[in-house]
């Protein structure tokens, strides 16, 4: 079993496969992003935009290999499903953002 090691790194070095060691909070203590949240490229961009400078991460294991054709098919299904369910709200900025967050999460789950 891999022993968890915590490390504080600048946000620029944060990558999607990393796992947060603790919640990211505002200076007043309000929660911005929970520790159990899955990091994706767009989440990292959003965290940077939010003004986060440093984060504490734990080391993790590499993703297992999966059949690329299967992954591609499933990715397409995820995208089509979201497009269908969001069909009446896909012009609203907040809903576009939410759809992006869910898409990242569902696709990230497939790869992990």
């Amino acid at each position: 079993m891999t022993k968890a090691i915590e490390k504080t790194i600048p946000i620029e070095k944060l990558t999607p496969n990393m796992t947060l060691a603790r919640d990211i909070t505002k200076p007043n203590g309000d929660l911005v992003f929970g520790q159990k949240g899955k990091l994706t490229d767009s989440i990292i961009v959003r965290l940077r935009r939010f003004g986060v400078r440093k984060v504490t991460v734990v080391t993790g294991k590499a993703d297992e290999y999966q059949d690329p054709e299967y992954i591609e098919k499933k990715m397409k299904e995820i995208e089509e499903g979201l497009n269908y369910r969001f069909r009446k709200v896909d012009h609203i900025p907040l809903m576009i953002e939410l759809k992006g967050i869910l898409s990242d999460h569902l696709k990230g789950k497939l790869l992990s």
Binding site: F33, G34, G37, K38, R46, F50, I101, L102
Partner: peptide
């Protein structure tokens, strides 16, 4: 709720579990 959309992203792993 005093939250940003980003907060939702932080809940998704726990929701799955």
């Amino acid at each position: 709720l005093g939250i940003e959309p980003l907060f939702i992203a932080g809940c998704l792993e726990e929701i799955d579990l």
